[in-house]
Design a protein around this nucleic acid. Structure first.
Lengths: 211, 211
DNA sequence: TAGATTGTTAATCGATTAACAATC
DNA sequence: TAGATTGTTAATCGATTAACAATC
């Protein structure tokens, strides 16, 4: 599969493609054309074909795309079939909510271990996972090599925790701390989930209405 | 203030500008130049000046920007000073986490009421808010006119809840359901917080590394 | 075969960057 | 005044859309 230097806007559309094609797959749809995808997604058919062609040729002239095959190809592009593992650091309300409700499997991850720094939590069980002390994280990582870490620690602990994780050889940070992390040159990938940014944009949009 | 037809990329950068300028303000910084902002934000100085100039002239030649003034102006642009109110629908783990930990005030919102459909939760208190039954939402909205609704209901209830909220006159939906909502022509603004999309992009990025 | 639809090239559109006159 | 830095125009760059030959 081609995969070099894909533009960020393309990459950010991939999950939406996946969700759409997965929905079609689950409703037993066999084939789909770029124009049908266009209606569902609100992107132009041209853009959809252009985006897919960054990674290969998945369709067939006169027919369209086979849903099952397309779904598999997008999984491959996204790396969902790599069997990645995740750990979660910070078992507060948000961490707990993710452990209980978020379907890691569906995004291609297995949640392997959870950590907290509060002694009163350590040893407790959360959805079948024992809470480990964050002091044991580095040893755990050295042995188990988890791929990504879910950061649900308080904002104040964000930078410190990020550095610990980077030093532990984690390759990706899924960052819920509402803080930008400074981790230059460490080659670690970061995805921020910035609740407040999203709410501010919504605030702008409803203010905009008034003009 | 100018506010017509601002490009989406500009709007999406505004919260990051705000967080940065707010940090400067809180550390008692008086003035800042576009080049200093550039270093902190990773945008070019040119882009920063271009972005600000969409909304007015906030700086001064030879001096830069007054931090306090700039912070205020961005608040105004984002609509953070409009005294907007919010309600939250769905008091599961994630809803609970937001109620407890998210600083609505800091983003310019006041959380006014919370709703759930589970009878066993109705009447309980959560961080000082009584849980109301979702059947009373429409009456509540008719009386109190909340501006936005935080949707933390299960995915299956997403579309139904969105329609109820639209019918209740809510102007903005902050959508945590991981589902795209279909609300054409209702003039309602939606901001999605799609956890799974974000994790899939991270998955792509760490896969990308291998090539 | 005729109709449909891809993958790709070329054209357009929009966003970012560079440059600089204005001026504090 | 001299140095610094804005706001804005023009140039560049990149992303999206349109068009169409290839072909199933």
């Amino acid at each position: 599969m081609k995969r070099d230097n894909i533009a960020a806007p393309v990459i950010n559309r991939l999950p939406k493609y996946y969700r759409c094609v997965d929905d079609l797959y689950r409703s037993n749809c066999i084939r789909v054309s770029s124009s049908t995808l266009s209606e569902r997604l609100g992107f132009t058919a041209s853009q959809i074909r252009q985006d897919f062609s960054c990674f290969g040729e998945f369709g067939q002239q006169g027919y369209g795309y086979n849903v099952k095959k397309l779904r598999y190809e997008i999984q491959e592009i996204l790396g969902m079939n790599n069997g990645f593992s995740a750990i979660l650091v910070g078992c507060g309300n948000l961490g707990h909510a993710l452990i209980r409700n978020f379907d890691f499997k569906r995004a291609g991850f297995e949640l392997k271990a959870i950590f907290d720094s509060r002694p009163e939590l350590v040893g407790a069980e959360m959805e079948g996972h024992p809470v480990r002390h964050v002091d044991t994280l580095k040893d755990y990582a050295a042995a188990a090599h988890p791929d990504v870490a879910v950061m649900t620690v308080p904002s104040d602990a964000a930078q410190e925790t990020a550095e610990l994780l980077a030093a532990s050889g984690i390759r990706g940070l899924w960052n819920f701390t509402n803080r930008d992390l400074r981790l230059d040159d460490k080659g670690i990938q970061v995805e921020n989930v910035l609740f407040s940014d999203s709410l501010m944009v919504l605030c702008y949009k409803i203010s905009d209405d008034e003009y």
